[in-house]
Design a protein around this nucleic acid. Structure first.
Lengths: 247, 247
DNA sequence: GAGTGGTCTAGACCACACG
DNA sequence: GTGTGGTCTAGACCACTCA
């Protein structure tokens, strides 16, 4: 009762991996195979303890992680149930564009059209949580992938969160990268919609004025203040957001 | 040393919540306050054990969950570090449209335009993993929110996964709901782009032909086969995907 | 009251990284 | 070797649910 690992560690372990992963695998496999249909009662912790010959903490961890992954639902005093087939919610990756382009093995270039201090109009000031008319940083940058315009990034930054923002060379570093280094991101909010580009955006992206664009508006916050708000416009024909999810 | 909870349970607990949540809260607060900048070494498990007077399993759980949430990075033999400010990835909720509309307190209606068996063209057959020309189920449904067209749902279903799909009354239940009940969803893949609607889509959605639309293409799979592929077209002016993330 | 999950503990062995 | 995280155990108390 001293060494839980006294027996044959790497000799020919009967089943690979840590015990809690074995329990998880077993349950996951059963779920994938439809052994427990959604809503069905699954084995109790005690039953799994007996079945696997491990301690309760171990099966508890396995079940807790399955719950965190959305595969099972647990109710104190009642039991563990196969999850009612998941909400259709999923992870969408909004990576830094530079990363995304270079990950594809392509060349990323940025052309800076605006990089200055401006007085914030009322609407913007409200969104950034600064006084109307107070100075904010404004950048307008077009990002190219192998010479083709891919994104028009119109961004306002709260100077209090990143006082040296305007000193950056945005042909070398994206605003996202700069802001990540200088601030503590704590929360982000975004919306995605399809819209026509403005005349300026169409010109900068070298597309026809009526061409549908995918517009992502993202606001990021520290734990108390708004850091930045960005409007990212992508030509609809050249850009697709992708994602997937596995329960 | 027998009862860890012997002292004042609901009397006036010095700090609320389970011990592991207290440890988590403390660390989260420190991260939010910038007490550990990204990459900085955080207290070791042993240090937290001493600081909070709890067992190592307890602080281990707190740290493990923070890691799962992406707030810290841990390396065996090295230590725990404040996460390098998160990837910009985030959770996008793609809920069932019926839920979404009723959650807004609005009325949802569906008009079914197509509901039949068809032979699968080669391209579709390949995506669904069935033989070219073999029968697939096809539905074309327009969803309305308070009388306004909000989504045109063009969907093909693998008959093997949901043999009774066509028997449903889609004015009462969305295809998503039907499929969730009859199949074991295991993986979903989607893409989001901006595009012009087809002539038919424009007519069904009652919009101008050139109006930008947000197009979501979603494929869902069981653990081995494709269940369904859907093209969801939304008028750009009426529909926005929203999401947020908090580390 | 029996069964279930929620949580904690004290101690242990291990693998790994680094000086 | 020392310190770190990774994991396991055996037993415990608790809160909850349901018959």
């Amino acid at each position: 009762m001293v060494s839980p690992h006294a027996s044959a560690p790497p000799l020919a372990s009967p089943t690979p991996g840590a015990p809690y992963t074995r329990v998880k695998r077993h349950l996951k496999a059963g779920l994938a195979a439809g052994r427990w249909t959604p809503g069905a009662l699954m084995p109790s912790e005690a039953a799994l303890v007996a079945e696997f010959g491990v301690s309760r903490m171990t099966v508890n961890r396995a079940l807790r992680e399955l719950q965190a992954e959305g595969l099972v639902l647990r109710t104190q005093g009642v039991g563990t149930f196969a999850a009612p087939l998941h909400k259709v919610s999923s992870t969408l990756t909004l990576r830094d564009l530079h990363e995304e382009i270079t990950a594809r093995g392509h060349r990323h270039e940025a052309v800076v059209h605006v990089q200055r201090r401006e007085g914030a109009p009322a609407a913007l000031a409200a969104q950034l949580g600064v006084a109307p008319g107070s100075p904010v940083f404004h950048t307008l940058i077009v990002h190219f992938e192998d010479g083709t315009p891919l994104q028009c990034e119109d961004r306002y930054v709260n100077p209090e969160c990143a006082p040296r923002y305007l000193e950056s060379d945005f042909t070398l570093q994206t605003p996202t990268q700069v802001l990540f280094e200088s601030t503590a991101l704590w929360r982000a909010q975004y919306s995605i919609e399809a819209a026509r580009p403005t005349a300026q955006e169409a010109r900068l992206l070298q597309i026809a004025p009526g061409e549908p664009c995918l517009v992502v508006v993202r606001r990021t916050f520290t734990h108390d203040a708004a850091i930045t708000i960005a409007r990212l416009v992508h030509p609809g024909l050249r850009y697709t957001l992708e994602g997937q999810f596995t329960p």
